[in-house]
Nucleic acid binder design. Structure first.
Lengths: 230, 230
DNA sequence: AACCTGTCAAGAGCACTGCTCTCGAATTGG
DNA sequence: CCAATTCGAGAGCAGTGCTCTTGACAGGTT
């Protein structure tokens, strides 16, 4: 099957090339990139693209999926590179990695976390990769609880219905995780997403030159809220 | 000028009708609504639309601007309806109003706070209306400080560069507003945006049936962070 | 070496888009 | 009443996603 694998290899290279060019177009055209333009850049007929991707949405889905994986990898790698016991530094590393990836790949970030493409429905394959970044951050909180470095907030803070909802999720993530703590971890993730989005989508005030420091401080606020020891 | 005003009135009605139909299409097609489809719904030729809006982007800009105003009005009205001295309740009212407006007008919210439309650049007219919702919330914090109900966080929390940046902004908003307090108010606004976006863009998914309560709790967390008295 | 068979690129074509221009028709102000 | 302005409709251009057909090529088999 060596001969067949040659053909398969050429095909794989072609797919990679299409994705690379499409990613480049993504940076300028966003979600409405043109298949024909990609084909033009590759010097091929637009119809030839359909040999490799059944539709434009399918190409987009592939890019989205790979972007989720890339972001997840970046956050996880940053977390892994820090002393496991230094929870606060792990939190900072994970959040900073997410922001750095977003700033380096703004179009892909917009594709993941911007407004959903109208006709487009995310297939099920994307939900698991999409959960990885937040789960990595929640994992830091979980470790802190397990290590006794973190005292959970009073459960009375949580209204009963939310406590029940979150208790189910918490149990599936990590046995013994208090709902109130999970709520604060989710708040941290929400804040991270908001911070990056505001910065990337240009809705941040003009007079904020020291964005890195601002980001760090806002992230520190959430670390305090979660209870990560200084 | 009565005769002229007849034509002007018809024209104004026509513009309103176009905007209304466009808003309806926005709900299904998002940012890539079709001028031709709008024209079809109105029973007119597509070229006729150009008598009223110079381009599709211009129509979108009008919708965006009016959406900002609507959201700003909703938040302000909710804030105004609450006893001025009950800061926490004002915070809740403002945040809930923003969420309610977003849930009622998801497409418009996506247009305002989703990923920016690729080729589209927001004109200057939009920045002032865009600032109204966050400024209303910051105003609550300012009032709390002025009334002495709110003790500002220690300035040492803020790294020097951020303190300087925020001090400039704070001074332009309200004299005497501490930078550290402004930072927390901005964190609250960021969190609000993140919460609404996650809920609206479907990234919260299953396992959280009591969304209202969840939202309230997350907002309460930020109220605590800001220091709004219970 | 000759012969199928599956794969591929290309072209034509359909329905759609934003936008421009022109041409009559209607309305308005003088 | 007439000239000037405004308006709607139609044709047309360049672009889009996508489908279908046609012809060329390489793979493995006989």
């Amino acid at each position: 099957m060596v001969a067949n694998s040659l053909r398969a290899r050429v095909r794989a290279e072609m797919i990679d090339e299409i994705k690379a060019v499409a990613r480049r177009h993504l940076a300028t055209d966003g979600a409405n990139l043109s298949l024909r333009a990609v084909a033009r850049d590759l010097g091929m007929a637009s119809s030839a693209i359909y040999r490799y991707f059944p539709s434009r949405d399918d190409l987009l889905t592939t890019l989205i999926l790979e972007a989720y994986v890339a972001l997840g990898d970046a956050v996880e790698a940053a977390d892994d590179a820090v002393d496991r016991d230094d929870l606060r530094e792990r939190w900072f590393a994970g959040c900073r990695a997410a922001r750095a990836w977003a700033l380096a790949n703004p179009a892909e970030y917009a594709l993941l976390y911007g407004s959903p493409v109208p006709g487009y429905a995310a297939p099920d394959d994307t939900v698991e990769p999409a959960m990885r970044p937040p789960l990595t951050l929640i994992g830091i909180v979980r470790d802190g609880l397990a290590a006794g470095q973190l005292t959970p907030p009073p459960a009375a803070d949580l209204p009963q219905p939310v406590r029940d909802d979150l208790a189910d999720i918490a149990a599936s993530l990590s046995p013994g995780m208090p709902a109130a703590l999970l709520a604060r971890g989710m708040a941290g993730w929400t804040q991270l997403f908001g911070l990056i989005s505001f910065e990337l989508f240009g809705r941040i005030k003009g007079g904020l030159p020291h964005r890195d420091d601002y980001f760090d401080h806002q992230i520190a606020l959430m670390a305090d809220l979660i209870g990560l020891p200084r």
